[in-house]
């Protein structure tokens, strides 16, 4: 068996992800899906800034690095003038659910024919691990040093609950924690891209991801934490657009 990175993924220079970071896996999954669907030369990808912007250095797809929290409207602008080309927005939980939440919801409301991949690691990574809307109750972060609670940080935002009433093409959540879940996450990304090719509209795939640096855990402990705890708050699976079932 030969394990080979997708042709247009180049980890060789410029990448500065922390050891055990989920971005590397997510990037690879996106690369594998684009290659398997033969979309790598047609696709246009829009990234966020900070950790979510670093994929620009490790792949060779046509890419825009948008403003923080604005990859979704930027991707909409691209898609509206190039409707026949696959467009994918890749951003973190802070971008998609905090500063860019309005843009996320309104793109879903319009059922824009784009794919949105949200890497949810429950913190603002690049800025030092402050709490985000998806920070779990009780989670210690640099801006919730005594553990996040309703008084200090409000409720924990679950995008599935938020978007489940909307008329969109696809909504799924995967987890980057073990081989089985990673394979499932890839399937979700692939399905989302296929739905875009079928003109079905807005797809959002959330990927629960480790952030060893800011969680202050080893990569293997992060994986256990996602399996044991994070997925109990954020269940994985397909929630809208699951084939063969009524939504």
């Amino acid at each position: 068996m030969v394990i080979k990175a997708p042709d247009r993924i180049t980890y060789t220079d410029g990448h500065s992800f922390c050891p055990g970071c989920g971005h590397g896996t997510a990037i690879r999954l996106i690369g594998e899906v684009l290659q398997e669907l033969k979309l790598e030369e047609d696709s246009i990808i829009v990234l966020d800034v900070a950790c979510g912007g670093m994929p620009i250095d490790v792949w060779r797809y046509d890419t825009i690095e948008a403003a923080h929290g604005r990859p979704v409207p930027t991707a909409v602008g691209v898609k509206m003038v190039r409707p026949d080309q696959p467009v994918l927005a890749y951003l973190g939980d802070g971008a998609a659910y905090s500063i860019g939440l309005a843009e996320t919801i309104h793109s879903a409301r319009r059922n824009d024919n784009i794919v949105v991949i949200v890497l949810n690691n429950c913190v603002f990574g690049m800025t030092g691990g402050q709490m985000s809307p998806t920070t779990l109750q009780g989670q210690v972060t640099t801006s919730s040093p005594n553990g996040k609670n309703m008084e200090s940080g409000g409720a924990t935002l679950d995008v599935v609950k938020l978007l489940s009433s909307m008329d969109i093409a696809y909504l799924a959540r995967g987890a980057i924690c073990d081989a089985a879940n990673i394979r499932k996450a890839k399937k979700y990304i692939k399905k989302a891209m296929e739905k875009q090719l079928n003109q079905e509209g807005f797809s959002l795939v959330e990927l629960l991801s480790p952030c060893p640096t800011n969680w202050k855990m080893t990569p293997s402990r992060c994986a256990d934490h996602i399996k044991e705890h994070v997925t109990s708050i954020f269940p994985v699976g397909e929630f809208i657009g699951k084939e063969g079932e009524q939504v």
């Binding site: 246009i44 829009v46 825009i64 948008a66 403003a67 604005r70 409207p73 930027t74 991707a75 909409v76 602008g77 691209v78 898609k79 509206m80 003038v81 190039r82 309005a102 843009e103 309104h106």
Partner: peptide, 13 residues
């Protein structure tokens, strides 16, 4: 905010 970032995307394309 959304409008100007849509412009950024469309112009980049």
């Amino acid at each position: 905010l959304a409008a100007i970032n849509m412009v950024l995307g469309a112009a980049s394309a």
